[in-house]
Design a protein around this nucleic acid. Structure first.
Lengths: 285, 285
DNA sequence: AGAAGGACCAGTGGTCCGTA
DNA sequence: AGAAGGACCAGTGGTCCGTA
């Protein structure tokens, strides 16, 4: 259990000070939750904020060689987080540039068994799945604020939620990453046993994260087959999964496999009915 | 009943030939339906297409003095409905222009009693509400196609549905109009008796459509008050209303009135609990 | 003045590809 | 080579305002 704490703190080198302002605006929200959490929660919620960040200084002064975006830059919002003090047309900033301050990124994921802590500059899969739970918490907070203000209330993890997470200091959460692994989290939600088995198998065989990620599709398609191929219903029915958009590729795989199954059953007997299923598999990934 | 047919045909002067292609791509879809329809349906579905349009000729050759849009114009989609043969930079088309071909619009709405047919170059409110039912039909068709193709399936009347309606020949359906009167349709769905009474009242007093439209907000807020102020739940719970986005202004009015009611009950007794309600009204439109 | 709707705009879902 | 994520882009929700 102490290991968990250590691992959580290994993230600390990348976390920013949480922006309290938005958090203050809302009631508690969180509530429910269920299992997990613990040390994760502490690091995530910025409660470890007392610990100084190693690279903390330069973070805000970077500028990252931004290319001139079209539009936007008008509405400033109520946040005071806008630091646009340099003229956009300053010829010194255009083109080459890049002051040399190295970009910070999250450590890459490795395939870990359930409960296993990643060593070195790596993150484990328990941590990955924990990020999804954190996003859920952020969504609940956004929903609470929206209801209080009588505004439209998101039912999914939207851009607005990612923005909120970032403002709350969870700079390690971003849309491309979360979308990339949604189906892995889905398998974890829908068949934790199966998900765990897959993790052990891929770890044992020394496969990388990309291979494990790819392998998560197939069992999901099998689950969908058992439930009438309705992957949207499967997501929407599950309390923790319902807040995530069904990934395009998973939807396509389910559709392709449904077609293949239908064609097979037609060319063989023609019986038609639903039920049963399972069997071979015509998946071409 | 014959009058209905006549009135439906009065729309015919503005309807375009339906584009069958997309319609062929899908199964029947429609189904359910319930009440109304009849002659409306015929005109709407383009079954009267045999009747020639008076202004049919110039329709497609207009060009309407389009200002140069940014972006788009790239992806052509699978439709063959793209008639971009004139160079965008043709100096003769830029600026002044306008060949003189007059723009066609739908006749304006007037306040009519239930069952009453609008005379002259006007449309009645039964026709307005019928447009909402038509949009529902178009949505169901879009959903059917999406499911067949294994694509994301809209639950609301989206831009995609409006585009589909237009391609299917229902050029008289457009987003700004439908959004403008959503709350009027909502009242019609949620309290048809009340809606009918309001129509009779406003007709009798010779009020115009804008005044009637404004007056539709208040009874809706009263309904919301009775149901715990959750206007989203009220929309989503109703089978025909659930496909429409809650109008911003209606949401704001419900929120403002909820605040006012809460403040009043606090300053008087402090009792707190939900229930009852009704009473005075602090609405400032 | 009253009303219909083309056209615009800020912010979305989705993910590529320059980066480390 | 494998992976994280800034940044982009087509199409969305929302509605203003030039038009009739």
């Amino acid at each position: 259990d102490n290991n968990n704490t250590l691992d959580a703190l290994s993230q600390e080198g990348l976390s920013e000070e949480p922006v309290q302002q938005e958090i203050e605006a809302m009631g508690s929200g969180g509530g429910g939750g269920g299992g997990g959490g613990g040390a994760w929660e502490l690091a995530a919620m910025g409660i470890c904020a007392g610990v100084k960040t190693k690279h903390g200084v330069q973070r805000r002064s970077k500028k990252l060689g931004v290319k001139g975006r079209i539009g936007s830059s008008s509405q400033v919002g109520r946040g005071d987080d806008n630091y646009e003090n340099e003229s956009e047309d300053d010829p010194e900033n255009v083109g080459g540039g890049g002051g040399g301050v190295e970009r910070q990124r999250e450590h890459p994921f490795i395939v870990t068994e359930p409960g296993e802590v990643a060593r070195g500059k790596k993150n484990g899969l328990d941590y990955l799945f924990h990020l999804y739970e954190q996003c859920r918490d952020f969504l609940i907070q956004v929903q609470t604020i929206a209801k209080e203000r009588g505004e439209k209330c998101p039912t999914k993890v939207t851009n607005q939620v990612f923005r909120f997470a970032k403002k709350a200091g969870a700079s390690y959460i971003n849309k491309p990453k979360m979308r990339h692994y949604v189906h892995c989290y889905a398998l974890h939600c829908l068949d934790e046993e199966g998900s765990n088995a897959l993790r052990r198998d891929f770890k044992e065989r020394g496969e990388n994260v990309g291979a494990w990620r790819q392998a998560c599709y197939k069992p999901l398609v099998t689950i969908a087959a058992r439930q009438g191929w309705d992957i949207d219903a499967i997501f929407n029915t599950h309390p923790r999964l319902s807040i995530w958009y069904v990934p395009t590729k998973l939807r396509q795989l389910c559709h392709a496999e449904r077609r293949a199954a239908a064609a097979a059953s037609t060319s063989v007997g023609g019986g038609g009915g639903g039920g049963g299923g399972g069997g071979g598999g015509h998946l071409h990934f």
